[in-house]
């Protein structure tokens, strides 16, 4: 139970202080508080909100977040395979969860109400090893002023980005560390086929000024004019537009990659009961409403309301995404990508 009591600085009354202490003691004795270590790649600025909403319904479970980019959280989970420190994963790319599931690191559990989720949003096994939350979709963040200043045409498709005029003006996330980066790469390979896909990336690489560690950074760099075009995702673009950034959001017409955000219980957790409660809550209506505050597509059908500045054409341009292929080939693709392009990558 979360108790925050501000003790007045100068009570000047010992009896009052003693009573207060006694009350405090009884409170902490009665409320057995469970703690969950939750690994996540959710946006940092959302963490507090997510925990607070959850605590409104479950005040007796404290969430300790471990947050980093998708790639790093995934690598961390894999590295800790023998000695897991996480109890629950809440908000990590579906592809990563598929990889973990293949490694037998997830604890299958059917949360209460899981059957109501849309079909693509839960593991096909029963009980499911993971459950989906929402989907995020790739998009280009384009800085109006910078485009104008440099006389650049607004790109409409992925292929447009190969135009040499964009040389040095494009930034994208490193797929090894960023989930957004990986969904881009895997979508290109699915859209154009493997050979064409790598050829596309070779061409794009020539125009890219650097690869960032985080998936939202290209959009933020575009928002502050450090770059003209950032390959990022629609949610971040919408949010920055809300803050007044001079951005246009472009959804390339060939179709855009997307990725599920999902949750699961880590096998071997010592807090299985609390973990189950969190999983139950994560598929609830309240949770899906929460997801919808940032994402246009959520797991529970009928919940989604339009999100401000979110490009409407996104949903129709989402590709047929083969997650199991993306998961199965993740290691191979990333290795190949690193050996081809890593020299331009930003630290982290």
């Amino acid at each position: 139970m979360k108790v925050s009591l501000a003790i007045p600085e100068k009570t000047g009354n010992k009896k009052y202080a003693a009573a207060l202490l006694a009350a405090l003691a009884s409170l902490s004795a009665s409320a057995e508080q469970a703690e969950l270590t939750v690994y996540t790649a959710l946006e940092a600025n959302d963490l507090k909100k997510y925990a607070d909403r959850f605590n409104e319904d479950h005040p007796d479970i404290k969430i300790n977040w471990v947050r980093d980019s998708t790639g790093i959280i995934t690598a961390k989970l894999l590295a800790e395979k023998e000695n897991p420190r996480a109890d629950v994963i809440w908000g990590l790319a579906g592809t990563s969860l598929l990889v973990l599931s293949d490694q037998g690191m997830l604890q299958p559990y059917a949360p209460v109400g899981v059957e109501k989720l849309a079909k693509g949003f839960r593991d096909a096994n029963d009980p499911p090893a993971w459950t989906g939350m929402d989907a995020w979709v790739a998009a280009l963040c384009v800085n109006r002023y910078e485009m104008e200043k440099n006389g650049l045409p607004v790109p409409k498709s992925w292929k447009d980005l190969l135009d040499p005029v964009y040389k040095g003006h494009v930034i994208m996330p490193n797929p090894a560390s960023s989930g957004t980066g990986y969904l881009d790469v895997s979508s290109w390979l699915q859209l154009f086929g493997e050979d064409e896909g790598w050829k596309y990336m070779d061409g794009l690489h020539a125009n890219i000024s650097r690869y960032t560690h985080s998936g939202s950074k290209p959009c933020k760099l575009a928002a502050t004019g450090e770059t003209a075009i950032g390959v990022s995702y629609a949610y971040r673009a919408a949010k920055l537009k809300n803050q007044g950034a001079p951005l246009d959001v472009v959804v390339p017409e060939e179709g855009v990659g997307w990725e599920l955000e999902a949750s699961a219980i880590v096998k071997g957790t010592h807090n299985l009961d609390a973990a189950k409660k969190l999983m139950d809550w994560s598929v609830s209506l309240r949770a899906n409403e929460l997801y919808n505050e940032g994402y246009a597509v959520v797991a529970l059908p009928g919940v989604a309301k339009p999100v401000a500045h979110f490009p409407p054409e996104v949903t129709e341009r989402m590709i047929e995404n083969d997650f199991s292929w993306a998961a199965a080939n993740r290691a191979r693709i990333l290795e190949q990508w690193s050996s081809r392009y890593d020299a331009k990558s930003e630290a982290e």
Binding site: A176, Y211, S345
Partner: peptide
């Protein structure tokens, strides 16, 4: 550093980014 790799950032990439201890 942009795209310019140095040892210190490399170390970080290997350890944190790829958990390649």
């Amino acid at each position: 550093g942009g795209q310019y790799n140095v040892l210190a950032t490399d170390l970080f990439k290997q350890v944190i980014g790829q958990q390649n201890f």
